[in-house]
């Protein structure tokens, strides 16, 4: 796998990140090195092996569906960079007309 600037552009959009030209070049270089390193996994024969997803043997740990107030609206808004008394504020994203 060869990483190029086009792929970095695609991945950075998916990641909601952006890089200037120099940082983008560095990212091309770094990801190529790291992918070259992790591609060693191709050597391992995994035919018939199930992916390991859950790390304990516990299944369906459930609790009562009880209504509990864990945080208030004020608390939820407390750490927001922009807010009014009821809402998180975001830039306008619907055209006015």
């Amino acid at each position: 796998m060869k990483v190029n600037e086009q792929l970095i552009g695609h991945l950075s959009h998916l990641s909601r990140l952006q890089f200037d030209e120099q940082a983008g070049q560095e990212m091309v270089h770094d990801l190529n090195r790291i992918l070259g390193f992790v591609e060693k996994l191709e050597e391992v024969n995994t035919e018939g092996v199930e992916p390991l997803i859950y790390m304990t043997d516990e299944t369906n740990i459930l609790r009562d569906d009880a209504v509990v107030q864990t945080i208030t609206q004020d608390e939820a808004l407390k750490n927001a960079p922009r807010k009014d008394s009821d809402y998180f504020r975001v830039p306008r994203f619907i055209d006015q007309d």
């Binding site: 990483v3 991945l11 990641s15 990140l17 890089f19 990212m27 770094d30 990801l31």
Partner: peptide, 13 residues
Amino acid sequence: VKRRIMLGTFVLS
């Protein structure tokens, strides 16, 4: 952190 987010996004894409 950005490097790891990018790599993670790649392997999941």
